[in-house]
């Protein structure tokens, strides 16, 4: 049996707008959760590499906990569960807030992605950077200037190909936000489907848009990688 897709449906009035709006929301969600998960992941990695036993086991335990649960769980937990466990008034305020689905999704995605970021950073801190880190310590760098100027930039640079792959995975994970009705790209494609019955066409269009977004994202990450390596080299020359 053969089926001829009718692509022109996608160009009829409300549909391009819906899909592009979805693309923009996906991009926003990806940027917010990437930034937040990098911050949280760096903190977790620093905690796991720290001298304090309490910090090590707390950060390690948190990573293990998050990694054993699916991403969807975190999104739903922030969206449905959080308003129930905070004081009643705060819960009502959250439920009444228009931006709540978006920010609940952003929080869920960030928490879900952070342990993987932490793993990658921690792994390279352990192997490649040992010598450089020890000499930076010996030359008197401590606290923020040690982590912020030497250890973390090195760890970002060293873990970069794998870190890029993880961040791309996070970009794809933004599609989970549709389950709490954030109008991102996957949600938009299903919205177009429900209005036009052109499910295959809408889903294929979303696939192409994701591919474009992913391609652009990995180009940016490649540029960042190059900059990072250069920055680490100059910093090393200065220290």
């Amino acid at each position: 049996m053969s089926y001829t897709p009718h692509w022109d449906v996608l160009l009829e009035d409300p549909y391009p707008g819906i899909l592009l709006n979805g693309l923009a929301t996906t991009l926003e969600l990806a940027l917010v959760s990437t930034a937040a998960s990098l911050v949280l992941g760096s903190l977790l990695a620093v905690g796991r590499a720290s001298d304090s036993r309490l910090a090590r086991s707390a950060c390690g335990g948190f990573c293990d906990l998050v990694r054993s649960l699916p991403g969807v769980f975190w999104l739903l937990a922030f969206f449905f569960c959080l308003p129930m466990i905070v004081p009643e008034q705060a819960g009502r305020a959250l439920n009444g807030w228009d931006g709540f689905p978006f920010w609940a999704a952003a929080a869920g995605l960030s928490v879900n992605n952070a342990p993987y970021v932490a793993d990658l950073l921690y792994a390279v801190m352990g192997q490649a950077g040992r010598g450089a880190m020890a000499s930076a310590r010996l030359s008197g760098l401590t606290g923020f200037s040690f982590w912020g100027r030497v250890a973390l930039p090195q760890a970002y640079a060293a873990s970069m190909p794998a870190l890029s792959a993880r961040l791309l995975h996070n970009l794809k994970n933004t599609s989970l936000a549709m389950v709490i009705s954030v109008p991102e790209l996957t949600w938009s494609s299903q919205e177009v489907e429900s209005l036009s019955f052109a499910g295959l066409e809408a889903t294929t269009a979303a696939t192409c848009l994701y591919a474009g977004l992913g391609f652009a994202f990995s180009l940016v990450l490649m540029l960042v990688e190059r900059r990072l390596h250069r920055a680490v080299r100059t910093e090393a020359a200065r220290v």
């Binding site: 794809k172 599609s175 989970l176 996957t186 295959l200 889903t203 696939t207 994701y210 591919a211």
Partner: peptide
């Protein structure tokens, strides 16, 4: 490039 969710929908259609 494609999210799993979208793959599920795609196969579904």
């Amino acid at each position: 490039w494609q999210p799993l969710l979208l793959t599920v929908f795609w196969i579904h259609y």
